[in-house]
Structures are given as structure tokens and as C-alpha cells.
Amino acid sequence: MKNWLFLSIAIIAEVIATSSLKSSEGFTKVLPSMMVVIGYGVAFYFLSLTLKTIPVGIAYAIWSGSGIVLISLIGWLALGQKLDMASAFGMGLIVAGVVIINVFSNATAH
């Protein structure tokens, strides 16, 4: 179960880092730039810990798919970016894929 906690931390850290990229204004703002560097460092460290028990393809699919959806939602809710029906449908497919991997795949370490 610890491996899923590590993967969750990796996802959250990556989302924080990616969300801070816009605020860093091309790494010209110190605090947001530090959040980007530290966030990605934490994300990759915890992702590496999950790879001890979860296959890399499965971990990366969950990490990147979850990150895409969360970043898109943050962009929509916090940054006023538009999401149309096609993007919402596509993100729904990503979420469905993550659920299918977690529920039905024998390749994941449950």
C-alpha cells in the first residue's frame, strides 16, 4: 500500500511543479521557480520509489494520466483556461484508462 502513497505524492508534487511553471514567468520569479525545481525533484524521487514494486509502464501511465487531468482542471478552475467538450471527453477517457488499469490489470502491484 505504501507504493500507492508514494505514487500519489509523486503525482501531487508534479502537479504543483507544473502549475508553478506559469507563475515562474520563464524562471524569472524566484519563489515559483523554486517550487518548480523542488516539486519535480520530489515527484521524480517518489516516482522512483514506486518503481520498486509497480512496473514502470503502469506507474508512468497512472502518473502522467492523473497529472494531465489534474493540471487541466487547475488550468480551467484557477487560470481561466477553456475546456471544450472534446477535451472533457478525452480526459474522461484518460480517467477511464487509469481506472481500468487499477481495477482489471494483473500487472499492477495490489
Rank of each mutant, 00 (worst) to 15 (best):
K22H: 09
L70N: 10
L49M: 14
A17Q: 04
I74F: 12
A61Y: 01
V37C: 08
L51N: 06
L83V: 14
K29G: 00
K22F: 05
E14L: 02
Y60N: 09
I11E: 00
V69E: 00
L49S: 07
A78L: 14
A78R: 10
P32V: 00
V37N: 09
T18F: 10
L47E: 03
L31R: 08
Y40W: 07
W76I: 06
Y40E: 01
I16G: 08
A43I: 01
V56E: 09
I71D: 06
G26P: 04
K52G: 10
L21Q: 07
V69L: 09
S64I: 14
G65A: 03
S48T: 13
A61Q: 02
I11M: 05
V36H: 02
V42F: 08
F44Y: 15
V42C: 09
W76Y: 15
T18D: 09
Y40D: 03
L83D: 06
F46C: 03
I38K: 06
L21H: 06
G67T: 11
G57V: 04
L31D: 04
I74V: 15
T53D: 10
E25D: 14
I74M: 03
I62A: 00
I11F: 02
Y60L: 11
V56N: 05
Y40L: 02
A61T: 07
A13C: 08
S33V: 07
S33W: 02
A17G: 08
D84Q: 11
V15E: 04
G57W: 03
M34R: 07
L21A: 06
S19L: 10
S24Y: 05
W76K: 05
L70A: 15
L73C: 06
F46S: 00
L47M: 14
V56F: 12
G41K: 12
P32C: 04
L31A: 12
I16L: 15
S33E: 06
A43F: 01
V30M: 12
I16Q: 09
L77W: 14
K29F: 07
V30S: 11
L31W: 14
P55K: 13
S64R: 12
G57T: 03
G39M: 03
F27G: 00
K52T: 08
K22E: 11
D84K: 13
M85I: 15
L49R: 14
V36R: 00
W63T: 01
I58Y: 04
L21F: 13
L51F: 10
G26I: 07
G26Q: 09
V69C: 10
